[in-house]
């Protein structure tokens, strides 16, 4: 019963918040404001140093999970996001950071993740950590990942979420970009978010 009361009050609070924040913006992506916790993590950057959500505070951040051996989803997502950023007005592009988190620490060392993301552009940070830390982060954003059986070469598939989580400058969860969104739709959403941050 107490669980219900707590959950009900949380829902009431969420409704109230949604009421206050009703800016009337029509998003192309799924609005997840109030549904998910703020951006918070400590992972390892390519230089081996710890990297936290604070390191790019103030920026609109796009978080997504993948692995460098990923055959299709990851490179395609990365390219789509990069193109979306390129379609934004020049002075806004620097206010967006992509956070690529490899969930395959067995093969992906921090350096390797760094080399991989450098190939796509310089506003991407490649991150990883030990499996336990990654599982905690994935769970925080209610997603999961798993490993397939290795073939004779030791190669294996990694199942992971295909969604991109978008956080605003203050680290609040704002949008969930699904795989069926066009580049210009993503771009428009990001522009609106950056603009909101400036107001």
């Amino acid at each position: 019963m107490t669980g219900i009361i707590r959950a009900l009050s949380v829902m009431a609070l969420m409704l109230a918040l949604a009421g206050c924040g009703g800016s009337g913006v029509e998003w192309h992506a799924k609005n997840i404001r109030g549904l998910m916790p703020d951006l918070e993590f400590t992972l390892t950057a390519p230089d081996g140093e710890p990297f936290t959500a604070e390191d790019r505070a103030g920026q609109v951040r796009l978080l997504f999970f993948g692995f460098t051996n990923c055959p299709d989803i990851c490179p395609a997502t990365m390219a789509r996001l990069q193109n979306a950023v390129k379609q934004m007005p020049q002075d806004m592009r620097d206010e967006v950071t992509l956070l690529f988190v490899s969930v395959d620490p067995e093969r992906d060392t921090p350096e390797r993740v760094g080399e991989y993301v450098d190939f796509f552009g310089d506003n991407i940070v490649g991150l990883t950590s030990d499996e336990e830390t990654l599982r905690t982060l994935a769970k925080r954003y209610r997603t999961t990942f798993g490993y397939g059986k290795p073939d004779e070469n030791g190669d294996y598939d990694v199942s992971h979420s295909n969604a991109v989580y978008v956080f605003d400058g203050q680290g609040r969860a704002r949008l969930l970009i699904r795989s069926d969104q066009s580049i210009s739709q993503i771009s428009e959403d990001l522009e609106t978010l950056v603009r909101q941050g400036r107001d």
Partner: peptide, 12 residues
């Protein structure tokens, strides 16, 4: 499925 409080509210 995205929100933890909503998920628990659903099950309870």
């Amino acid at each position: 499925m995205l929100s933890r409080p909503l998920y628990w509210l659903m099950n309870w």
